[in-house]
Amino acid sequence: MSVSVIQDFNQTIPIDQVGVEERVSRLNKRSIKKESKLQALKLALSMIDHTTLEGKDSKGKVIQLCSKAKMPYAPMPDLPSVAAVCVYPNMVATAKKALRDTAVKVASVATAFPSGMAQLGIKLDDTRYAVSEGADEIDMVISRGEFLKGNYTFIFDEIAAIKEVCGEAHLKVILETGELETLENVRKASDIAMYAGADFIKTSTGKISPAATQPVTLVMLEAIRDFYRKTGTMVGMKPAGGIRKAKEALQYLVLVRETLGSAWLSPDWFRFGASSLTNDLLMQIVKQETGVYQSINYFSND
């Protein structure tokens, strides 16, 4: 990528919030029925980053999470596995072992997640450790304080530095949009992350409210589209936090389909960071396949 295509991040790209919300509400009117619904439910299931990011996480908890990730619902063994499990760095080795010989990836948060309030050296070490433990994907956080100060080169350089130590591992950059507050900030942070080398851009840590919203996701998808048009490089998208219902997941997929097109409708390019979404998707899939709703007691809570 030549330097000439990098934008001036001090320039703000105007975004009209009212217009974004109207677009989202129009996309939400898409009626997803029958085969297209079943296809989308299974697709959404395959895009999940099944996540546990709690202080009380233990090996046992992570192993349970992994078995659910591999085989989300035993009565339907043909269902896709989820895309990845997402854990803290010290759980990577456990997850890696539990998921051996499967297609399920291990994602690790890093860089002093969730606040990112640490020196660069510590963040780099955090990342190196997660990678050395075997993480396939690194979910880093940006320094929101520096961003809101207008220190955009700091953000750019930090992401670029983390990307370098990621090596083969994919880098997801968490913008924590709930702390950026405006859609124009979301757009700017998306651009900085992509130009600095992000493989994915991600809305939230899940620790701040609001987490993922559809207007924020739409703005990020449009940033990805503009970046692709300009550079030819595809970047993935991951809304995370607060997506609990299958219906919402389908709405997100419609956003992707009508903004970026079919190429992004794959776990390689789109992920849901969620934990309780899995069971709602399973319930809806069972409903579509059998015609009746099954009790929530029949779905494991891992």
């Binding site: 299974k42 395959s46 010989d101 692709y228 550079t231």
Partner: peptide
């Protein structure tokens, strides 16, 4: 990653053929 020593099980039935970038 190097974990997928075996061919990934294509249970997902999506995204195929895998899009190339760019």
């Amino acid at each position: 990653s190097d974990i997928n020593t075996k061919e990934p099980i294509d249970k997902a039935n999506n995204g195929s053929p895998k899009p190339t970038s760019p």
